[in-house]
Design a protein around this nucleic acid. Structure first.
Lengths: 206, 206
DNA sequence: AAACAATACGAACGGTCGTATTATTAGTTT
DNA sequence: AAACTAATAATACGACCGTTCGTATTGTTT
């Protein structure tokens, strides 16, 4: 994949450019709307050349999901984990998520919310991959909450609180795209604050 | 549209049959996945005959949204409004919604959650229609909550509480489809209960 | 320089898409 | 029964879909 001198082989550069564009398209038009012909045209390369990198549409979709997951990790998880474990990280993670949505890291809002709904009721490898990412994300949130509980900074059922927080995130994301305004983010932040304060018994310092 | 004797004209019967199938397909595969050829084949009628009823794909999509809205009103709003205004209606509406999702009134889960995400980041008449339905629904929830507040049964900002409740509904719906289990419904119900109890200061009688 | 693999290309395939035009059937009205 | 209208069907079109194939180009290795 990578040469010893750190440069990328020609093929990997193309692959990378394809996937960067693919995640953006898919966040707006879904993984079905992501067509090989369109992708090739927008990138100024040939359809067959692009296709050869993936071998099938489904493989392209799976690679797109993996690429989006890396971006998500970089933009949400990594920044949140720079804060100390515990209540602060719970709060900051929420801020990071809302910011990730608001900054439109993906032009269509959260990539995973979009395509998870697209494939939720269908079978196949794409569905499995997305269900896996969702499970992974919920587990991670739960862990972050649990650390706060174990430190005595929070009194809550970790799974329950993770469910609530994630619900606020997604509701804000959808509202902001659907109505093209920011109101949902303020509501979500308020909901998060209230929810955390009722689980700590006191006001948050942030 | 309707004859004086109450029977439907031949054309309206077809239209109705088409839309009943259309909402089911769209709840699983989206309003793009809803293709005219497929719809005609599944119903055993001709593609051109079906097409003539709507004149364009977009008109079919808009008619499908209107049909789904009628079903949604019948399955969620009407049952909830059989209960007295106030806190009880807030609680019952939540129960109705979760039940509507769990019963798979639409095989792909909530029709509107599915297609709203599909069209959230696109322009056009379909987007506008869906944004309108979303606004309409949030306003209705807000009104239901406000009645409870005005009766002194609840101490909350109606818009904020409506936002939270709706967030729980949607999170449960997605989780249940994505992972093909019921766990999300229990979590949502718990979240709703806790949220309402913290806004009343006492336990709910249900 | 020769040989080889990796990468990209253009052209074509069978299919399905939405749509338009034209014909045929069924129901209603006279 | 004839005339008329509404509903359905048949057929065709161009555009795009994912995919395959043969070939050219490029880069690396010997």
């Amino acid at each position: 994949m990578e040469k010893v001198d750190g440069r990328l082989a020609r093929g990997d550069q193309t692959r990378r450019a394809v996937l960067r564009r693919a995640v953006d398209i898919a966040s707006v038009d879904g993984l079905e709307g992501l067509s090989i012909g369109r992708l090739a045209t927008e990138l100024g390369i040939s359809k067959s050349g692009l296709f050869a990198h993936f071998g099938s549409k489904e493989e392209l979709q799976l690679a797109t999901i993996r690429a989006a997951r890396r971006i998500y990790a970089d933009e949400v998880v990594v920044p949140a984990f720079k804060f100390e474990p515990g209540l602060e990280r719970v709060w900051r993670m929420s801020e990071c998520w809302l910011d990730y949505s608001r900054r439109r890291v993906f032009p269509g809002g959260c990539f995973f919310q979009k395509v998870s709904h697209e494939y939720a009721a269908r079978g196949g490898a794409v569905h499995e991959a997305l269900a896996g990412v969702h499970r992974e994300w919920m587990d991670l949130m739960e862990d972050v909450v649990r650390e706060a509980v174990e430190r005595g900074e929070l009194d809550a059922d970790p799974a329950q609180l993770a469910f609530d927080l994630n619900a606020y995130y997604e509701a804000a994301n959808l509202a902001s795209i659907l109505h093209d305004n920011q109101a949902g983010y303020d509501q979500a932040r308020q909901s998060i604050r209230t929810r955390l304060e009722s689980a700590t018994g006191s006001a948050l310092p942030w």
